[in-house]
């Protein structure tokens, strides 16, 4: 028997299997392997997408017996001229921008600190990462208690530092505070994720680069801006992409926390879409809404990925 591992594998392959594939070209065998995945992808992704686009031009309601009628671009026109839709878009934009801003800022700072060698480093990493291990629904639920004006820890802490009466403000009931209440919770939960990605970026920078900079007498400040930040930037941008896509879909945490209120101030597009599709059962309308959101996210993500690739190429 040959000692070559490839020969050994060839010899170990059952003859019936080898016979079965004998005569197939490499291309055919490649298609045989890839085929099931492509069929699955077509079935669960592409077909529903095409079907959704088709439904978006109808007045179909999934809970009605009557047939759908084609109504052209009427659904799109109604969505884009609906003040409520724009309000939920604004709420989503506010949520997206500020969660990403704070998560990047705090996540990078934490990663920078954790990257320094100190005693208990691993323990602190584990503690910091803990919030992202929880279910968003659970987090939403228990933060409603933390935000309770009479018994909530959050109000108590704010009161302790500011002297304001804890029961004098309601984070989830106040028009000005409610949009920030969901930003705070999401930041608390997902900053560790950004931190981990930044940490991976920081640890990928070879020490030799910093040593060379030291030899050139570069200050710590200059090292940070000319070495650390540019080299971590692709990682940061990846984190922003992940968090952006995730937060665009944000649903469970906000539903548990505010139910979309007060009024519709924290009704994000995903909540609005769910209500249209599965509470009002306006399937055609909701399909058009989903297509608009898909195009928006897909367009923004494509532009962003191009920018990310350019940063990587530098």
């Amino acid at each position: 028997m040959s000692g070559n591992p490839i020969d050994r594998i060839a010899q170990a392959t059952p003859p019936s299997l080898a016979n079965r594939f004998r005569g197939f070209s490499d291309r055919t065998i490649a298609w045989l392997f890839v085929g099931p995945s492509i069929i699955l992808l077509l079935a669960v992704n592409i077909f529903p997408l095409i079907w959704t686009i088709n439904l978006s031009f109808t007045n179909f309601k999934a809970n009605r017996l009557r047939d759908a009628e084609y109504i052209g671009f009427r659904n799109y026109e109604r969505i884009l001229t609906d003040a409520d839709t724009w309000q939920s878009m604004q709420a989503t934009a506010h949520f997206l921008f500020w969660t990403i801003f704070f998560q990047v800022l705090i996540g990078f700072a934490l990663a920078y600190l954790i990257n320094k060698k100190f005693k208990g480093n691993d323990l602190w990493t584990t503690i910091i990462v803990f919030p992202m291990m929880l279910s968003p629904a659970v987090v939403g639920n228990f933060w409603t208690f933390l935000y309770q004006p009479q018994i909530g820890l959050f109000n108590y802490v704010v009161s302790f530092f500011s002297g304001v009466d804890p029961s004098s403000f309601s984070m989830i009931g106040d028009v000005d505070l409610a949009p920030w209440s969901i930003v705070i919770v999401d930041t608390w939960m997902w900053t560790p994720f950004v931190m981990l990605i930044c940490l991976a970026g920081l640890r990928s920078i070879p020490d030799s680069i910093y040593e060379a900079a030291e030899c050139d007498r570069a200050s710590k400040w200059r090292q940070f801006w000319t070495l650390t930040v540019p080299m971590v930037l692709p990682f940061l941008m990846l984190a922003v992409l992940f968090r952006g896509i995730e937060n665009f879909k944000m649903f469970d945490l906000v539903v548990q926390l505010t139910g979309g209120g007060p009024g519709s101030l924290t009704t994000l597009t995903s909540i609005d879409l769910k209500r249209e599709a599965f509470e009002k059962w306006r399937t055609g309308y909701a399909s058009a809404y989903a297509v608009i959101l898909f195009v928006t996210v897909f367009g923004l993500a494509s532009i962003y990925v191009k920018a990310l690739n350019k940063v990587k190429e530098r």
Binding site: N63, R64, G173, V175, P262, R275, E279
Partner: peptide, 20 residues
């Protein structure tokens, strides 16, 4: 049959005025 489509705007309108 469209009660949910009637309920949801009432939730939104009333909540916006009374609470917000």
């Amino acid at each position: 049959p469209a009660y949910a489509s009637l309920l949801l705007p009432m939730q939104s309108r009333v909540h916006s005025y009374v609470i917000a």
